[in-house]
Design a binder for these strands. Structure first.
Length: 123
RNA sequence: UUAUGGGGGUGGAUGAUCGCCUGUUGUUUUUAGCAACAGGAGGAAAGUCCGGGCUCCGCAGGGCAAGGUGGUUCGUAACACGAACCGGGGGAAACCCUAGGGAAAGUGCCACAGAAAAUAGACCGCCCCGCAAGCUGCGGGGUAAGGGUGAAAAGGUGAGGUAAGAGCUCACCAGCUACAGGGGUGACCCUGUAGGCUUGGUAAACCCCACCUGGAGCAAGACCAAAUAGGGAGACGCUUGAGGGUGGCCCGCCCGAGUCUCCGGGUAGGUUGCUUGAGGUGUCAGGUGACUGACACCCUAGAUGAAUGAUCAUCUUAAACAGAACCCGGCUUACGGCCCCCUAAGAAG
RNA sequence: CGGGACGUGGCUCAGUCUGGUAGAGCACAGCGUUCGGGACGCUGGGGUCGGAGGUUCAAAUCCUCUCGUCCCGA
């Protein structure tokens, strides 16, 4: 069971423009110093993720770096995140200066907040 | 060793754990998953400043317009690029810079200052004449040697000459034009003769001359193709009722003017274009060189919310600029550290 | 990725084509007017013309390179 635990397949990524639009339209936001999160319920039994980085963020190298960090955060902490939600990362410039430990702490905090809100919403 | 100028290379490595994309093979529960193996960013991938290939549109041929290029000869698929050479400028030198055709084809412009800024021109000065007169003043004329202005003032020096001067005349020098001879494929260089004595700058102002350029771009283009709306053709039907609802079915009842099939275009979306190419590496040959030819070997990213990463450890500390998006050839710009070669000058030995 | 426009005082813009003086409005400061303020009138300060190089006697203006901002095209 633990074999595919840390994988990140194509099905687990938000890939269409319409799906992004839906999440932004219906989702909720949580903000942190290093990144903002937008999440919404989907009707699937898995969670999916996407990253949004604008041109203002920096050059191509910086944008790529930010996306890769976000993907790693999702991939390594996926098993903690409740199933059935779409999650979009909007990284800020501070993410490039943050250490891995800081980001890991931040994502755990985020997961707790999301779980709480999802719980309230379902009741 | 220090320092100057030029050229070239390198562009983190190793290990562990967890992942991503593509291809091939195998397998299964076959629009997909799993396993194994192989491959997976740059010298600038960047800026998009040029040149091509490749697509679609246009096109008998020629001219105009518009834009670009601008020493010569080579190189190249082509270029605004490169090489060698010529001319000019800078430097003590190695070496560097150079949009470098034409200003006697024409037009325009040259602010301020200055008398005058391009058919030259008399403010002061110098000289002559006339009138008045004590020093001198006024008027007419000659004069570009001197002063002053300016970025720029119409050859320079010397002698003759003159009322004073002036290429007005002469010598030398600089420069121009024409001709002749020689060298070079050529730009151009060298030598000689003659001429008039002399012609400002600006063409990255209009322009003239020579040469080049059809327009768009992979979001090009091609193919497959939901839903909705609409187009064309055919069939059935419009109170003698097609079709639909109710219902297990028929009758009945209710609604009722359209319904069904096919074709073509085509949006969302998908597939393709998509990587074997003016390709690399090596040897030999030709050429001063850019480059070219022959032979052998190699296959080296192809994503699409967009892969090549994350964490830890060691290397003294791992760090610069920076990420393919149809593909090549250049140019330009950014860049930490390290290494190599050539070179001028100085110091020491 | 491709195509196009714009950078001038603190702000909004002229001037660039056709090269020699950088100008207007608002804002700011001072004075006048008023018992005081506003409005009004007069006066004044403030600009590396995004940056670098070139052409020219001379560049905001012409040429080349570069930086930044904005717009358009699935």
């Amino acid at each position: 069971m633990t074999r595919g635990r840390f994988k990140l397949t194509k099905a687990e990524r938000i890939r269409k423009s319409q799906e992004f639009q839906q999440v932004f339209k219906r989702g909720e936001r949580i903000n942190f110093p290093e990144f903002n999160l937008v999440f919404a319920l989907n009707n699937l039994n898995i969670s999916r993720m996407g990253v949004g980085v604008g041109k203002r963020f920096g050059n191509a190298v910086k944008r790529n770096r930010a996306k890769r960090l976000c993907r790693e955060l999702f991939r390594l902490n996926k098993y903690k995140i409740p199933k059935g939600i779409d999650l979009i990362f909007l990284p800020k410039k501070a993410i490039l200066e943050s250490s891995w430990q800081e980001l890991n702490g931040r994502i755990e905090e985020a997961v707790r907040k999301i779980a709480k809100r999802i719980h309230e919403k379902r009741e």
